[in-house]
């Protein structure tokens, strides 16, 4: 059975189509394994080699990876929720209630999106504290620290814009209070509030604007910055590894 499977896979690898996609032989040496990483769009910003120490739990608690996985969960569940949601004034609240009580597995997806969002804010903050306290912001990682801070802000903006979309009392007052905080900014505050809300009150324009920010603009910014963030980890020489990461031995 195993040999049949093996020979079947080998047969696929020998086809012209497979070879046109992957352009390399089997990953049986360090060279071909490196080529496999270099030649793949989704792997090329990851390091070809990592130190074993940096893979230990203590080195990072995998907080960055956890944040990224939560981001992917939010991306997938968010796209699914969009199939049932209209960002318009009477519909938004009803669609949210439909998702909870009418749509099959809707409540599961909505709660998954909501919980993953809460967890992502938590994970990103924890990631930042962990990097800060172990000095991961020091040269040569300064630029990546700044990218990370911007990603934290993007995460918070994503949370905030998503908070309006259920269009309930909590959402309405949170955005009323939040945008009044913006208008306290000197000189440009009121202008920014007007642009953000598309008017003077939290109404339909505001809902649509927050929706577009939430589902298009901010995720795009997040995706680009996450790409840079991962790539710079590799270019800056990998994770900050300390001697005590060896299973607690100093």
């Amino acid at each position: 059975m195993a040999t049949t499977l093996h020979s079947a896979l080998q047969h696929i690898r020998d086809t012209k189509v497979w070879k046109s996609i992957f352009r390399r032989g089997p990953a049986n040496s360090n060279r071909t394994r490196s080529l496999a990483v270099f030649g793949n769009l989704f792997l090329h910003w990851l390091p070809v080699k990592v130190r074993e120490k940096s893979l230990r739990v203590r080195a990072s608690y995998y907080l960055g990876s956890i944040s990224f996985i939560l981001f992917i969960v939010l991306f997938v569940t968010g796209i699914l929720l969009m199939f049932y949601y209209h960002p318009a004034a009477p519909h938004a609240y009803r669609d949210m209630k439909d998702l909870q009580f009418v749509v099959s597995n809707g409540v599961f997806l909505r709660n998954l999106h909501r919980l993953a969002a809460h967890l992502m804010v938590f994970a990103v903050f924890w990631h930042m504290f962990h990097v800060f306290y172990r000095g991961g912001y020091k040269p040569p990682h300064e630029f990546n620290w700044v990218v990370g801070v911007v990603l934290l802000l993007v995460t918070l903006f994503l949370s905030y814009t998503g908070y309006l979309l259920p269009w309930d009392q909590l959402a309405f007052w949170a955005v009323t209070v939040g945008t009044n905080i913006i208008s306290a900014m000197p000189v440009v505050g009121n202008k920014i509030r007007y642009l953000l809300l598309g008017g003077n009150i939290v109404g339909e324009n505001a809902l649509l604007r927050f929706y577009v920010l939430h589902v298009v603009i901010l995720p795009l910014i997040a995706f680009v910055l996450i790409g840079i963030h991962f790539w710079r980890v590799q270019k800056d020489g990998g994770l900050t590894v300390k001697p005590k990461d060896d299973d607690g031995k100093e």
Binding site: Y194, L195, G198, G199, N200, I201, G203, E204, N205
Partner: peptide, 12 residues
């Protein structure tokens, strides 16, 4: 900037 500033508002 002009495009994003509404000229007509359907507000009370």
């Amino acid at each position: 900037y002009q495009f994003l500033s509404p000229n007509v508002l359907f507000e009370p």
